[in-house]
């Protein structure tokens, strides 16, 4: 699609105050060069409909706030260029999450599951500032660390959670992002909560609920591979 022309976008609207019906609304956007889907949503907000609701923050593909479903695929609205999308461009809220209004979803179920895996470092010492605490020495080229270094790039945007069919079928499934985070902390040699964490992620609703569909890998906007983390967590459970 050449830039600098009118581009039709169709937005999935939902307003609980107006009866709660989900419907498609089309807008013709004056598309400038390099215009992103987020820019187009701002154009609609400023020129057509000030009631359109969506979430955003950094506008630079770093924070994950503007994750939504664009032309049927999860992605960051700020990182998807209109000229690279087939028109009419459809924009929907993330799946498997309650819609608050229009493109704005309630991320609480996502973060509740994230929190369930204790997604933070739990060290053996009371504090890293404890004088008795020895600094960790990692060998150069440590394979596990190389994987962790890649996997900690997750920005918790929820795209993988939305793309995962198991999340929509099995409500208790923790989801790709939470399990990826569990791996990154459990694989840390200094982690003091590894056994407990592994116990949690191998129970029902954890890594064995995953069917290796792989949509999470396909959609991740920052190139994280949650399925790899899930596989490694399973191996941690299998190779005991």
């Amino acid at each position: 699609m050449p830039a600098g022309r009118t581009v039709s976008i169709r937005v999935r609207r939902f307003d609980p105050a107006a009866g709660g019906r989900r419907l498609w609304q089309a807008y013709d956007v004056d598309a400038g060069p390099m215009m992103s889907v987020l820019d187009a949503l701002f154009w609609v907000l400023e020129n057509e409909d000030p009631t359109l609701a969506f979430r955003y923050s950094c506008r630079a593909g770093m924070c994950g706030s503007c994750a939504m479903v664009i032309n049927g695929r999860e992605g960051l609205a700020c990182a998807r260029r209109l000229e690279r999308l087939r028109a009419p461009v459809t924009v929907e809220p993330l799946r498997s999450l309650p819609v608050i209004k229009d493109l704005l979803v309630d991320l609480r179920p996502f973060f509740e599951k994230y929190r369930a895996v204790d997604p933070f470092y739990i060290g053996q010492a009371a504090s890293v500032f404890d004088p008795a605490s020895e600094p960790a020495v990692l060998p150069r080229g440590d394979a596990a660390r190389e994987i962790v270094d890649r996997q900690i790039d997750c920005i918790a945007c929820g795209a993988c959670y939305s793309a995962c069919p198991i999340v929509s079928i099995v409500p208790e499934f923790l989801g790709p992002a939470a399990l990826n985070r569990a791996y990154t902390v459990a694989a840390d040699a200094r982690d003091a909560a590894g056994v407990e964490r592994l116990h949690r992620v191998t129970a029902d609703g954890g890594v064995f609920a995953c069917h290796s569909v792989g949509n999470c890998v396909t959609v991740c906007p920052v190139g994280v591979d949650p399925l790899l983390s899930i596989q490694l967590l399973r191996k941690g459970a299998v190779h005991r």
Binding site: V195, L198, H199, T202, F208, R234, A237, H239, R240
Partner: peptide, 16 residues
């Protein structure tokens, strides 16, 4: 990473 035995219905189905 120290490991624990997998447990639960889904773990059984996955292995079987």
């Amino acid at each position: 990473m120290r490991a624990r035995p997998a447990r639960g219905r889904q773990a059984f189905a996955w292995h079987y």
